[in-house]
Design a protein around this nucleic acid. Structure first.
Lengths: 138, 138
DNA sequence: TTATGTGCAAAACATTTGCAGGAGT
DNA sequence: ACTCCTGCAAATGTTTTGCACATAA
């Protein structure tokens, strides 16, 4: 599908990947930019966007396109699912077995070549749940 | 949770809903705007955004937050899944049974109050698949 | 050396918002 | 009448892009 264009190992790319591996959150491009900037103050936001996109294409990292306004990135590349807090937007991993069989089901009922799937759960995280409890105690 | 603020039945809202019911595609806000504008040329884009958001909150329509850059809207409100073509961005329904049980599984392995889930399949649609076949015949 | 990558800034998109005037109940 | 809603335009937020210079291979 894609030609194998060699990807140069630049300082920027190394640091972007290193910073992404460090965290278990699922940072947005802008959050990655902030992390990288602490070590490489003159890095450009465009560079971060370009490289996150590139690394996602080659499969080095995962691009998570879920609800909310921004895309998020994840150094954990093996297939897994996510929960998003509808209050604060935080995204966490859901450690449950990947439903291997549903791709076939989808292929049978659609006219698509199915590549894969992603499940996004929505709910309220611990933090936001306890804040709401406080608010209810007027 | 939400107060029951009565929602006025304005011409704009009627037409937005009518246009959305007409189509089986999953139009973006801008596409809805174009549809509505043919009948109501002076409608504002902000009005369309505001009302789609509002109608999604009250459950009249469904807001689909999937991959791609824009949110999409759907007059079919009962729970169902979607496929998105990674080439052209088209979104279609997947008519397969909703996995009722996985919310509980997710609740058990996370610290979230799980509200629901959505499955997005990715793949290549009919159109894009045949175009690719043509391109390979140099 | 030379194609690829970077920083910077501007452009392109997508969405939200403030406000004065308009319309539904 | 009295809110709530709308059109308009400006503001905001996110992502992409053009270009001259820098750098990895």
């Amino acid at each position: 599908m894609h030609e194998n264009i060699p990807m140069r190992l630049t300082t920027q790319r190394q640091i972007i990947l290193e910073e992404l591996v460090k965290v278990t959150s699922h940072p947005t491009a802008n959050e990655v930019y902030d992390m990288v900037r602490k070590r490489l103050p003159r890095v450009g936001l465009g560079t971060v966007y370009r490289n996150l996109e590139l690394m996602a294409e080659t499969g080095m990292i995962l691009k998570i396109e879920v609800g909310g306004t921004q895309k998020r990135f994840d150094a954990t590349v093996h297939p897994h699912y996510h929960v998003r807090c509808v209050e604060c937007g935080k995204v966490d991993d859901i450690k449950m077995p990947v439903q291997e069989d549903i791709n076939e089901m989808a292929a049978q009922v659609s006219h698509y070549q199915i590549h894969g799937h992603h499940i996004e759960f929505t709910g309220i995280c611990n933090n936001c749940a306890s804040q709401q409890r406080e608010e209810n105690v007027h």
